[in-house]
Design a binder for these strands. Sequence first.
RNA 1: GUCCCCGUAGCUCAGUUGGAUAGAGCGCAGGAUUCCUAAUCCUGAGGCCGCAGGUUCGAAUCCUGCCGGGGACGCCA
Length: 555
Amino acid sequence: MKDEILKVIKESVDSLEFPGIPTGTEFEVSVPKRKEFGDFSTNTALVIGSMTGENPREVAKRIVAAIEKRQSTFIEKLDIAGPGFINFFVNKTLFESELREILRLGGQYGASREGSGQKVLVEFVSANPTGYLHFGHARNAVVGDSVCRILSFCGYEVTREFYINDAGRQMDMLGESVYSALARLSGLAREIPEDGYHGEYISELAGEIRESEECPEVPGDEPEAVEFCREFAYSKLLEEIKTDLLDLRVDFDNWYSERTKIHGRGAAKGKIGETLARLEDIDAVEEKEEACWFKASLYGDGKDWVIIKKDGAPTYFLSDIAYHMDKYSRGFSWIINVWGADHHSHVSRLKSSMKALGLDESSLQVLLMQFVRLVRDGVEVPMSKRTGDFVTLREVLREVGCDATRFFLLMRSSDSHLDFDLSLAKKESSENPVYYVQYANARISSLLRNSAEAGVGASEEHLGLLSDDEERNIVKILLRFPDVVHSAAESLSPHKVVYYLQELAAGFHFYYNKTRILDSEDANTASARLYLARCVQVVIENGLGLLGINAPRSM
RNA sequence: GUCCCCGUAGCUCAGUUGGAUAGAGCGCAGGAUUCCUAAUCCUGAGGCCGCAGGUUCGAAUCCUGCCGGGGACGCCA
């Protein structure tokens, strides 16, 4: 629909042959908030005016004359307003055809092919398998997941990946910690290392090991027992992570193990070795202070970074370079990482490494998530992983449910700090915005059920009877949905969908309270109104689907 | 000290690729249902868009400086 407006504008502008306007200059067509500004509005004259130096209102007059000359059937009236906006008032048959289009497309309304043929990799969560997921991980998980859903909807071929940091010191610490707990259970005086893991789950894991048949002898061959503890805890915790994520409706295509895919067997083998060799080939590394450094400062980062430590072990950064080289080699045209804001300094150094390796660092995009504060009754709930005193994702899910959890985590822009109000999320009342949107959907379902009983059905036959301002307003909100999806995909911002749905629900609730739908003046009007309601439902369902939130048919 | 994010209504935040009279929810004060789900709706009060300059037809939006809040700057991951 907007495309048709845009087409008319472009043809008219072309016919006027403005000097100095390159072909392909983009003009904006938007749906104005105020109805006196028409159904559609364009800034075309302002854009041209600023390029040619002409008065925008004069330009607008010429464009309007050109458009009128074309005698489009669907344009009822044109206005020039403000500094030079051209406002379109369209024939309502255009709205009717839009409604028919929505039901025809159904679950595909709002979807597009704009990402067609493009492979996207979205890596998110990637929590260390050294403990349960805490609530801080939840935002990353939900936003990453929703971004994937949105991109898929836009035609991208999306791969969801969880990078398992199962190599490195933290895994050894996990083994040490569990082993220490096991030793204590066996009556030995043994403390969990200071920088180890101290949560209750460590003792629980030790307890499980003790119950198992393969439990190593303690005391006995300690390194072997530590390794057993490490592997036992790892596989168990990874399963728990998967379980929690599924409960949050987050699923992955790949569980990418750093240990097996990056490190390989033996020293300096696998992708780590390859990567180091590549970096050496291009002279991007140097030996300094008994360590090996990547010269990131040559490639746009502020400083150099160690990639092989004094003790000969690779740093996390080197594995990360290797991992991202691998991402590129798998043929993705868009690589998205969802990271916590505390990783922000890694962004430029990782990009600098890709640049050094001759890869296009602009196709790597990092979505940084600002922190979540958990609040209960106005008081912050402390979340510290160090002391083991953190709120797990599991606890929150159990307390407030998946829908509310996801909704609240998706409500804010990623680069805004987020206060998650536990008491509010739990409330099943009007203060809670989750239900607001779901309720609109449930109401429509109820209408459709009742109408079936009454023998009236949604029908497109009499859409011409829709004439109220509220009805027109709803249609205008509905036809913005594809734009919202596009914009959410482009800026990786699921919260735009959340805001949109709240607006749509508000439009419907208002309408519902004001207008009797089933008891309309006549059956034809009722069928048209039901059709409109059905369209609203389609869009709500599609929108909630992008957020991974259920759209219950009754509440 | 360097870098990143934020600063908009009492609170939590949208709006930030420059556009028309800056929005929503919550909270507060009033009100609406003989009838389709009141988890709803309506009305009202509430704003130097952190401050100061600059850019221009036009700035919450872009630039510079400053102030305030958060985060990152380890041979940890």
